[in-house]
Design a protein around this nucleic acid. Structure first.
Length: 579
RNA sequence: GCACCGGUGGUCUAGUGGUAGGACAUGAGCUUCCCAAGCUCAUAGCCCGGGUUCAAUUCCCGGCCGGUGCACCA
């Protein structure tokens, strides 16, 4: 951690923001190298999760109005109730203390004064020192960033705590773009915000962070996905029931589904994700999918597997961080927005064959009901409809009686307009379920760096090297003149310009001796370096030295072939040994 | 939010009640120089505020920031 953050700061991957003003906790700026690396990680994610899967992308605002988060449950569920011990100063989750000491299961949903009263009533003690907590105030800590929308008596808004809400809120329109067909997926890459109590560990827990989320909307009664495309992908699973003894399950996506270890939809995305992690250089020796314990899941999730990476430095104890969550969210989100918002969060699912159903209905003769029952007539008509749906037999006699507000109303059956008619139903409205791969981009970037970081020896000299894959490395190739004289500098400049015009990210460096420049590039993960030397300017056809980062091996390549050789190396069609 | 420890050039650090030294890095130049450790020169620093003091980077208090532990973690 320390060596990596030091490198990150020194070489421009990431560093704490606003240090010129003393700094503020939980905010990081990506430097020249890091911004490029992060952009590539995001881009490969889009390629795999949006483009390759045929899903759409949106880009929603980070600020949303208060009702959105009332509906999503974040304003309620996002308050943590803390109580501080007067004796030892430890803070504890007040609701958890209540749950431990009583039969109450959802203490989190209770108001704070009630929780405070329960602390008194049950003589609850501080778990750390045993001092009584009675009489201590229960404080709420809200993790939502609040802001004002507009001047004057402005509307309250919040910075989104997850990009997902921007997708859910627009579901009614998004389903139109999907032509109402399930399943369909919507992705979004963007910033989210949480006012964390205690930001820690560099990029791992920040207050502003980037998420890449896919919300896949599926038919709850639909078929399981076809996992064939990823069935052979090998995964390391850590199911909930194994977690006490720490035993992993090494299997394939296909096997995991067959054996019922993982929900098929979740398993499918574990397979997709694994392929993606491989392209960005995650080390699978330090990686696992861990299933949430039942009590650990978010308020909306019915099953969740986290991608976890060990980001400890060599020789240290393992340090597992959560870098993504793959959750089956059920219909929680769409149902909630359906209840709160003035729109339909369902899709119309057409039956294979239209169904004919007999439906009992009434068409009350209001010219009779009105004069007869006065103000109650409307309610009586509604009661008749309810009754017709529930109990047709009630309409078999000469008269019908309904009860409204405790009062009985009787009328001749013929005045109710009761009939049973055959109706054709073409389908029904269903609330889709949501499968959600939710990736923390910053933590993933951190993992890529931690797994790429290496120290080795070259000619008895130590070096630090980032073994980034060519796909994510900020610089594709570095170009040096062996020395900046005798025309080598000019040739190297020209070569750098040529490579740039071919679309490479090129770093040009003529400062310091050649070994020093190689080491600089090693530290920022540049996979290949090209050196223009005396042979280059003397010989025809011109050749240059091509040096590989990982092995530090060198070969001579004709300048004219350089572009195609680099492309083949980047694509993995050629290895350096073949050259 | 609590506890402990810490904050000195870009980075890592030494040190001090009288404004600071090193290493690495960086820049200019030299060197036919292919793996950082050849030469010369140069640039650049005591987290912020208050207090004590003739004088504070140093001592005290508070804040901010970081590390670790606790707690929290959609």
């Amino acid at each position: 951690m320390t060596a990596l953050t030091e490198l990150a700061k020194r070489r421009g991957f990431f560093f704490q923001s606003s240090e010129t003003y003393g700094g503020v906790s939980g905010f990081y700026t990506y430097g020249p190298q890091g911004a490029s690396l992060k952009e590539r990680v995001e881009e490969t994610w889009r390629e795999r999760f949006a483009v390759a899967e045929g899903h759409m992308q949106i880009d929603a605002p980070t600020v949303m109005p208060e009702p959105v988060f009332e509906a999503s449950g974040h304003l309620d569920g996002f308050d943590d109730m803390l109580v501080e011990c007067a004796a030892c100063g430890e803070s504890h989750r007040a609701d958890h203390l209540i749950e431990d000491a009583t039969d109450i299961e959802e203490a989190e949903s209770l108001p704070t004064d009630e929780v405070a009263a329960l602390l008194d009533a049950h003589d609850i003690e501080c778990p750390s020192c045993g001092a009584p907590l009675a009489g201590r105030p229960v404080d709420e800590f809200n993790l939502m960033f609040e802001t004002n929308i507009g001047p004057g008596t402005s509307q309250t808004g919040y910075l989104r705590p997850e990009t997902a809400q921007g997708i859910f809120v627009e579901f009614p329109r998004l389903k139109e773009y999907a032509r109402g067909q399930l399943p369909f997926g919507v992705t979004q890459v963007g910033k989210s915000y949480r006012n964390e109590i205690s930001p820690r560990n560099a990029l791992v827990r920040t207050r502003e962070f980037t998420q890449a989320e896919l919300e896949l909307f599926v038919d709850p009664a639909g078929n399981d996905p076809d996992v064939t495309p990823v069935a052979d992908v090998e995964v390391t699973l850590y199911p909930a029931e194994n977690q006490p003894d720490g035993e992993y399950v090494e299997t394939t996506v296909g096997e995991a589904v067959t054996e019922g270890i993982v929900d098929p939809w979740v398993a499918y995305y574990l397979g997709v994700a694994t392929e993606w992690y491989e392209t960005i250089g995650v080390d699978f020796e330090r990686f696992r999918y861990r299933q949430h314990q039942p009590g650990e899941r978010a308020h909306y999730a019915s099953d969740c597997w986290d991608a976890e990476a060990d980001v400890s430095a060599a020789g240290e104890d393992p340090e597992w961080i959560e870098i993504a969550g793959y959750a089956y969210r059920g219909d929680y989100d769409l149902s909630k927005h359906g209840e709160h918002a003035d729109d339909s969060f369902t899709v119309f699912k057409q039956y294979d064959e239209p169904k004919t159903v007999e439906r009992a209905s009434v068409d009350p003769d209001m010219a009779y009901l009105g004069p007869e029952f006065g103000g109650a007539a409307g309610a009586v008509a509604d009661a008749l409809q309810t009754l017709a749906e529930r109990d047709r037999a009630a309409f078999e006699g000469e008269s019908v009686t309904v009860e409204v507000d405790g009062e009985a109303y009787e009328m001749p059956t013929e005045k109710t307009g009761f009939e049973v008619a055959a109706e054709t139903e073409a389908g029904r409205h269903v609330t889709p379920h949501v499968v959600e791969p939710s990736i923390g981009i910053d933590r993933t970037v951190y993992t890529v760096l931690a797994h790429a970081y290496d120290e080795d020896e070259v000619d008895e000299g130590e070096r630090t090297v980032l073994r980034l894959t060519p796909t994510v490395a900020p610089t594709g190739v570095a170009v040096f003149p062996l020395m900046d004289k005798d025309g080598m500098g000019e040739r190297a400049q020209d070569l750098a310009a040529d490579l740039r015009s071919e679309g490479y990210d090129v770093t040009y460096d003529d400062s310091g001796n050649i070994g020093r420049r190689y080491r600089r590039q090693d530290e920022v993960g540049t996979p290949f370096c090209v050196t223009v030397d005396y042979e280059s300017v003397e010989e025809d056809p011109e050749t240059v030295t091509l040096r590989e980062r990982d092995s530090t091996a060198q070969v001579r390549v004709e300048t004219d072939d350089l572009g195609s050789v680099l492309e083949a190396l980047r694509a993995g069609e050629t290895t350096f040994d073949d050259l």
